[in-house]
Design a protein around this nucleic acid. Structure first.
Lengths: 226, 226
DNA sequence: TTGTGTTCGTTAGAAGCTATAACCAGAATG
DNA sequence: CATTCTGGTTATAGCTTCTAACGAACACAA
């Protein structure tokens, strides 16, 4: 007795189903790594797995559902990397460490990065649970930013953007104590590092022979040193 | 006599050819604006122009050549916008003005922006003349950065990235007097603004209800105020 | 004006894709 | 044991890019 509940889990049928789905996604990642997400072919995957075309439609409703699943896994993978840092650092990871984890994750599979942060698919809207994963990451980031403590302003007036953040902080739900400066730091972290990473992975630096890692580190420094 | 040279220009045949090519590109931009570049269909364009499928192959060797042409035009358009600012500002445009031109250009046609700075096509390598256009833009940017004058350092040591830039400045050909700090400012400008713009255009800010323009302006401020 | 050759359009067709429909064998379940 | 559900098959529609073969219109030259 493996303690089967009323919900049809653990049945060997379902186990096999999940196994095939995982194999499909695995082949899909291989294809994406080679030719990008736009060239992903269900037919080719099926042929590669030794079965014929339409069989895959028993496991995924259509191409978009498969891609959505891949995007979800990508988010999950990045979020897990962030959470691992948070756990190791007792919930208050250092900002540079978080940045380096992000870059490592991006370089490990550039196509995966672009699946998350690249050119959006026109009709596509991320399902609810994916935005949930995104806010998990944001939560870790906000903790790290709070630890980085940008000083509660000695006497200088807050930036207009920080004033705006003081009024629009719904996205930082769960961090009611975060100052506008902390919120701004989080957005700046996200935006700046995405800027360098995106340009690097897209190959915009290759022609000019300079080291993207150094630009990245320089931007990280501007985030912490203040 | 319209002074026709040996090269077959101005012949009515060639004029018509160019006219059709332009119309094709026009329809292509319309399609891209609606469904993104990946969904661009030569067949649909031909049908829309009242002619049948393969006729377009008289004007473009294949789909990639058409897209390359669109990318080239996009670069040209952005470079022209930059050059216009440079001309108006007597060759020394203000950095915030340049930034605002960039944002305006990006918002005017997000898909065009992603064609230039979005997810790269796996096999694609930009032809030589496109990198030439890119360096035109970089030249304007470098002029603006030189005008922004980040001070030749009062006594503090240069950042590691600036040291690296002092050794790798081939991409700044034509600006031998630019200090490492100026070079760094240009790279930072490019990278940071691309970061915010890319996230904004991809819709990563929509769910959290904050104004991307304010983040953009905040980042512009960090570039100039120093 | 009468050839002659280039150019632009056509239709036909190959090869690929997504996705649906119809069908059939085997496993799970009553 | 019989029934149902599930996962595979082939056939097919409709879309795509792109090549091939052909015809008509135009440009140019004798």
């Amino acid at each position: 007795m493996t303690g089967s509940t009323k919900t049809p889990r653990e049945t060997p049928r379902e186990r096999y189903r999940q196994q095939v789905r995982e194999e499909v996604k695995e082949k899909a990642w291989q294809q994406i790594a080679g030719s990008g997400a736009s060239a992903l072919s269900l037919n080719a995957i099926a042929k590669q797995m030794g079965m014929s075309g339409p069989a895959l439609y028993r496991y995924f409703a259509n191409r978009d559902e498969l891609i959505t699943e891949l995007i979800r896994d990508a988010y999950r993978s990045l979020a897990d990397a962030f959470l691992a840092v948070a756990d190791a650092g007792a919930g208050r990871p250092a900002l540079p460490e978080l940045a380096r984890v992000l870059r490592r994750w991006a370089l490990a599979d550039p196509h995966r990065y672009f699946l998350v942060y690249g050119t959006p698919v026109p009709g596509y809207h991320a399902p609810q649970d994916i935005t949930g994963i995104a806010s998990e990451m944001m939560s870790v980031l906000l903790d790290a930013c709070a630890a980085a403590a940008p000083e509660p302003a000695p006497g200088a007036e807050a930036h207009a953007f920080e004033a705006h953040l003081a009024d629009h902080r719904d996205w930082a739900e769960g961090h009611p104590d975060a100052t506008p400066a902390v919120l701004r730091l989080a957005m700046t972290f996200w935006s700046r590092l995405h800027g360098t990473l995106s340009l690097e992975l897209a190959g915009h630096f290759t022609g000019m022979g300079l080291d993207p890692a150094l630009l990245f580190e320089a931007e990280v420094d501007t985030l912490t040193a203040r």
